[in-house]
Nucleic acid binder design. Structure first.
Lengths: 188, 188
DNA sequence: CCTTTCGCTCAACGTTCGTTGACTCAACGA
DNA sequence: TCGTTGAGTCAACGAACGTTGAGCGAAAGG
């Protein structure tokens, strides 16, 4: 909260971060096409030309705003696997999860966002498949991944009432047997 | 294949249908924003102004192109329920499923498509919940619905390799226990 | 103190889009 | 046969967008 003017570099860094924050929020809410450079600039209280000067193009701004958290390494058993997947449900609304939302919001309509989504999901499939036995491990892993994708889309992006009003633990509880079934393990 | 000129009304009907078909295909592939009236007109071999004259606005054209099949009535037991859900996986690429794809493609970025998606999914949840016992029936039904949504999005829209190359029956076979678990039934 | 750097703004360009109104011409009805 | 209808085209408008280049004014540096 100090009002003393920061040095030049500091001021620049803050402005850049303000723009990036506004971009993340708008991309996450509206998607790539409906988000305009002008709206980002307005939200960041800055001239549109500055956004271009700092980030080069709308495409590049999106690329930076829609960066997504890399999935943690593999090597889990079925239980840890399911637990970890369900844990991704309640990630708090931080800059990173905001970036994920931005990517997911546009993944069906923006080619580059689609490619990024395929890469991220592909990595998650690889990671999960490594912990699943059998020759259909990759297909099972893919299904687990899209199941979580569906839940996230329905919850965070479509905001379906039934999912919004339900507590996270309840969703996790109901989902656990389904995910467990996809690992190929019998019910304990 | 008869080359004799159809009467006026017939000719008009055919042109309208050609435009609507082009619109369905483009909306399904590109989404609302990236699909232009001009591109639809070009695909239908028609002047852009004619599209407007027949359908009034891009919005209205989308509304007609993205019409979706109403879900069949309820009153099933858990087995029929799961079977029916899995049956929706292999719906052939007809005009109706093309319309569903158009709606789904835009549901994350186009407000009206999102509203339509919420309504369709809501109806499916209602329908499923009627066949599920317990007070968490609606939540279970919602989860079954978004699970299928995730599979469809991953398969038809993101075109994930693992799902594209797998035969439908294999996907259905692996998914069945997961959906069954969501009905609240024990494993038979 | 003077020059250079640089964060930032202003005004504009060129493109693309949805949409409109005037027009053409063949089919129709009396 | 002649006036009317209606399918379809043509040219254009106004708005919004991404993007650019020139310029301003305060901080930095010697």
């Amino acid at each position: 909260m100090s009002d003393r003017l920061p040095p030049r570099a500091e001021r620049r860094r803050r402005t850049e971060e303000r723009i990036l924050g506004a971009a993340r929020a708008l991309f996450a809410e509206l998607g790539f096409e409906r988000t305009t450079i002008r709206a980002v600039a307005r939200a960041a209280e800055v001239d549109p030309a500055l956004v271009m000067q700092y980030f080069g193009s709308k495409q590049e701004l999106f690329r930076l705003a829609a960066r997504v958290a890399p999935p943690p390494a593999a090597g889990l058993d079925a239980d840890e696997l399911v637990g970890h997947l369900l844990g991704t449900l309640d990630t708090k609304i931080g800059a990173l999860s905001q970036g994920s939302l931005a990517m997911m919001r546009s993944m069906l309509t923006h080619p580059e966002a689609a490619a990024a989504a395929r890469e991220v999901l592909g990595r998650q499939i690889d990671s999960l498949a490594a912990s699943i036995p059998g020759d259909d491990a990759r297909l099972r892993a893919a299904l687990m991944t899209v199941v979580m994708l569906g839940v996230t889309v329905g919850h965070q992006l479509l905001e379906l009432e039934e999912l919004r009003t339900a507590p996270q633990e309840e969703i996790a509880r109901l989902l656990r047997p389904s995910l467990r079934a996809l690992t190929g393990q019998e019910v304990s």
